[in-house]
């Protein structure tokens, strides 16, 4: 139990550091900025404390906001993702997901991929919608969401594979 707590805290700090120092400076074509820090919310234990996840996501988002001068946009997006995570699990893995032992950081199956895809889309759409804060920018928001989602997913999968290489 203590080791999962430790792993999660170190994951929290490491992902934030990588995001702020490296990925915040990335900006392909003026549109695309990847946000792999949400991997913390995606990889949080399935049977972990739900309120703990909501609180931790809020903290994660508010620290991102602190560093990127964005008010509360990251905090809101992270909160929405954390709250809807159980529903996404249900959608991706079927109803009885809580009784199975799901390990996300393992070989990529269609279920795992659809879970990551949905999570990233929900987070990015909320984020970019709040960032623009104007319905006249809706087309730009959708394009940015689409392209950034693509890059975030690629980077997320690469990070998962780097941290957890196949043991077999």
């Amino acid at each position: 139990m203590n080791s999962t707590l430790f792993v999660n805290i170190s994951r929290f700090i490491l992902l934030l550091a990588i995001q702020i120092i490296i990925f915040n400076n990335m900006n392909f074509l003026g549109y695309i900025s990847p946000f792999p820090y949400i991997l913390f919310i995606i990889l949080y234990p399935v049977n972990g404390n739900k309120s703990g996840l909501v609180a931790a996501s809020f903290l994660l988002g508010i620290i991102m906001d602190l560093f990127s001068n964005s008010g509360g946009t990251h905090a809101t997006a992270c909160l929405v993702l954390a709250y809807f995570r159980p529903s996404i699990f249900k959608f991706a893995f079927g109803l009885s997901y809580e009784y199975q032992t799901i390990k996300l950081n393992d070989v990529l199956t269609p279920q795992r991929f659809s879970f990551i895809l949905l999570s990233v889309v929900i987070h990015h759409f909320t984020l970019f919608l709040l960032e623009a804060f104007q319905l006249s920018f809706i087309l730009d928001t959708l394009i940015t969401t689409l392209l950034s989602t693509l890059f975030t997913i690629i980077i997320c999968i690469i990070i998962i594979y780097i941290i957890k290489p196949n043991k077999r």
Partner: peptide, 18 residues
């Protein structure tokens, strides 16, 4: 309730910053 409370805080921060 925790979600709604924190959502309220973060949304008000967002709106206020805009």
């Amino acid at each position: 309730l925790l979600f709604l409370l924190l959502l309220g805080i973060s949304l008000s921060l967002t709106i206020q910053s805009h």
